[in-house]
Design a protein around this nucleic acid. Structure first.
Lengths: 269, 269
DNA sequence: CTGTATCGGTTCATATATTGAACCATTGGT
DNA sequence: ACCAATGGTTCAATATATGAACCGATACAG
């Protein structure tokens, strides 16, 4: 692992739940020496990626990130055009909806929205989604570049007793996902969470990301599943359109097969 | 310069004008070896800070930045509460308005807005503002932490014939700025640009950033200067309020002294 | 269809920059 | 007055970064 990679890795320990981190705590989180961590965090501070709270001496993310994010969003608009469909999805299902984007071989969380309908809901608190253990990941494996499958079968970490950990089981699940047009994962990453996911496409008409609903598992019924499927279709079509792409016919056909007898069949006009 | 710093430095070459950069071009921009640059860019890609455009093979900023920027903004809200006052400022003055934030000893560009009133306008295309050569920088020196002055007097790069390059001249300018409540710089960084700047304060009631107007120099008149001053006061009060701070009495007094006989004197009620 | 000049990416011996145990100075709690 | 944290620093040992040279692919001109 290069020194640069270690330095960048420090940033991944910041989150909404832990927005400020002291030097010692950061050492523990990163599992590295204090002197090393200090130099790394200094490099980050120098570049404006973190700044030190003058009163607590703890570190927090810095202003340089805002500029870079702005450039990124202007270069590849992704957040724009996600909000509205996601809002509708969360409202219609009463569950947590989220979108992930594929970059290289990694699936990054882009945006999430929690419905206020129930007092219990799923909180998404990850930066990247494991390919073999989440609905989003399965979706990427089923509809994304083929190389992902080879990669995923190599590192199948077990998160829960339900996690798929054999390549054969994974390939079976991918086949089902392709046929159904939706990915589904029940407690494979976190217990009591049932997720369903549909692919999103961009201006190259290639797989670009996923839109998903993460349910509290005890609430899942055939009826809710049907509602989620229908609205996943709408959200995927909407976001795909906003990203300048179009949903491949083969996907629309798969959705149609999974949703016979509902209005969600008709393509958007 | 640490390897990590060199790696992070690569990111600074991306901008709205140059959102995608190939490996060779990045080498030239960074002035470093190709193998080195390649490894650095790989570390960045690994962390999701850049991604490779699959068709052009060129690199662009990655999705991880969006998450981090979101966390930063939730931790320290800065962009929120800048837009509205900046819009009013740009409209009222007909010139380019921008806000910078101080992090450590560096002044970072946060947001800018160009008025559409004139066909010529100033474009802000920097990430960080030099302390000795811009109105924003002078403002930071006059109203920010004292250590900045020592630092600024050590590295007074000449950008134009008008750039202040002697410590004594700088200290004089700082004194005038403190007394006036506004910083002013005419062509010190870019020729034909005349800038005026007022300080912003945050919840600690310490200097947190600047709000500025960058004018096309040929348009500057005493009348326009007065208008800009008045609206800088309003913008500074507004943003300071949105950042949870309050404008120190000493600053309000300085403004009052510079603007006798106008309505901008009255504090916001 | 051959010669040339790019491009992105890779190799390996060299040597330079990174590392971490031990150390300080401060702070806050008991 | 003590102890256990904290953030920050030092320096010898060595792991890690470096860049000249190289490769294969692509694009273009003659």
């Amino acid at each position: 692992m290069s020194s640069a990679a270690k330095t960048l890795d420090l940033l991944s320990h910041f989150s909404d739940l832990r927005p400020e981190i002291g030097l010692s705590q950061l050492c523990r989180l990163a599992g590295r020496d204090k002197a090393t961590t200090y130099r790394h965090v200094q490099a980050l501070e120098e570049a404006g990626f973190v700044e030190q709270n003058p009163v607590t001496k703890r570190y927090r993310l810095g202003p340089a990130l805002l500029q870079l994010a702005q450039i990124r969003e202007r270069t590849v608009p992704r957040k724009a055009g996600v909000e509205a469909p996601l809002h509708m999805l969360a409202e219609a299902t009463g569950e947590t909806a989220h979108v992930a984007v594929l970059s290289g071989t990694t699936l990054y969380a882009l945006h999430q929205l929690e419905s206020v309908k129930h007092s219990t809901r799923v909180l998404i608190d990850v930066n990247t989604f494991p390919l073999h253990a989440t609905a989003s990941g399965l979706c990427a494996l089923a509809f994304g570049p083929n190389e992902l499958v080879d990669l995923a079968t190599k590192t199948m970490t077990r998160f829960t007793p339900e996690t798929i950990t054999t390549p054969d089981a994974l390939k079976g699940e991918i086949a089902i996902t392709r046929q159904r047009g939706f990915a589904q994962s029940s407690g494979g990453y976190e217990h009591d969470v049932h997720s369903m996911s549909a692919p999103i496409f961009d201006q190259t008409d290639l797989f670009a990301g996923t839109v998903s609903v993460a349910c509290v598992a005890t609430r899942v019924t055939p009826e809710l599943t049907r509602i989620i499927y229908e609205h996943l279709v709408l959200a995927s079509r909407g976001i795909t359109h906003n990203w300048g792409g179009s949903v491949p016919d083969i996907i629309e056909a798969a959705w149609a097969g999974s949703l016979t007898g509902t209005e969600a069949l008709e393509p958007m006009t």
